[in-house]
């Protein structure tokens, strides 16, 4: 983990309302592992005391990029940054995705909306490529299909309105596919997206005795494990304990999570 003053080298609309922000970050970039995030101090947000966490989309020795969309005060202010501007960043943060297990022959990615941005590094790093299920509201919400295909993944798309791929939920497509699989033990799931989707993916993994790594999203303040804002219930022998999404997570195995109903 380190703190770095980075420079914006690219900032543009990526697709629909989604934006790509690319930062020159020679200190943080090379350290990023799949599933980790960075904590940005958004410029021109003077009365905001908190940083904003973003999953890393791509990273290399020179820097990193994130994909985001304007959903609140912080991201709205972020849309105004321009190339050459400086952004202070802490990263890489959190515990990301592990490598696949020894017996895994087919890794399975499941993403809702731009959740797949957080899976890209994992998709690139995994030694075997498998199948990726991407779901979203509409065609415009399905990002990076070609990029995952280029990495060698079999990409299946679902949309709520049927404007791209199969109509319906991503988990329905996953169910159909799982039902056809003969050797479930050869599968391992990696997922990122809305809570309801993550829970659904986790439930399926548990039902089918699969391992599923879920990237959880919680409100954060410090981002480094100090303030205990971002906690999530993690099962223990005795019941449950709080785990910090920013430090112990954001990636948890499905069986660790105690979902609050």
């Amino acid at each position: 983990m380190t703190q770095e003053t980075t420079t914006v080298i690219e900032h543009r609309l990526f697709q629909g309302d989604y934006r790509l922000l690319k930062l020159s970050a020679p200190a943080v970039g090379p350290l990023v592992q799949p599933g980790q995030f960075v904590h940005l101090r958004v410029p021109r947000l003077a009365d905001a005391v908190l940083r904003r966490p973003f999953s890393v989309f791509k990273a290399d020795a020179a820097g990193l990029s994130i994909l985001y969309k304007s959903v609140g005060k912080g991201t709205a202010a972020l849309t105004t940054v321009t190339e050459g501007e400086e952004i202070n960043l802490i990263g890489p943060l959190g515990t990301g995705f592990p490598m696949i297990g020894k017996n895994t022959k087919t890794p399975v990615l499941v993403a809702g909306g731009y959740g797949n941005a957080a899976l890209y590094l994992q998709a690139a790093k995994l030694p075997v490529k498998g199948i990726a299920f991407f779901g979203g509201r509409s065609a415009i919400d399905i990002l990076c299909v070609d990029e995952f295909k280029t990495l060698g993944w079999d990409v299946r798309v679902t949309t709520d309105d049927g404007s791209l791929g199969q109509k319906g939920f991503v988990t329905a497509a996953l169910d159909l596919w799982l039902a056809e699989q003969k050797n479930l033990q050869a599968l391992e799931l990696f997922a990122c997206g809305p809570n309801a989707m993550l829970k659904a993916v986790g439930d399926r993994a548990i039902q089918n005795s699969l391992t599923a790594w879920l990237s959880m999203d919680r409100n954060m303040a410090c981002g480094v494990g100090a303030c205990l804002t971002c906690v999530i219930k993690r099962k223990t022998a005795a019941g449950w304990e709080w785990a910090r999404c920013c430090k112990d997570g954001p990636v948890f195995e499905a069986r660790e999570i105690l979902w609050d109903e």
Partner: peptide, 19 residues
Amino acid sequence: VGNSTPRTFETSGGMLNAI
């Protein structure tokens, strides 16, 4: 164990916490 979530909330020039 402390409180349930949400435990913090950003406000103008500050934040609320009930950790």
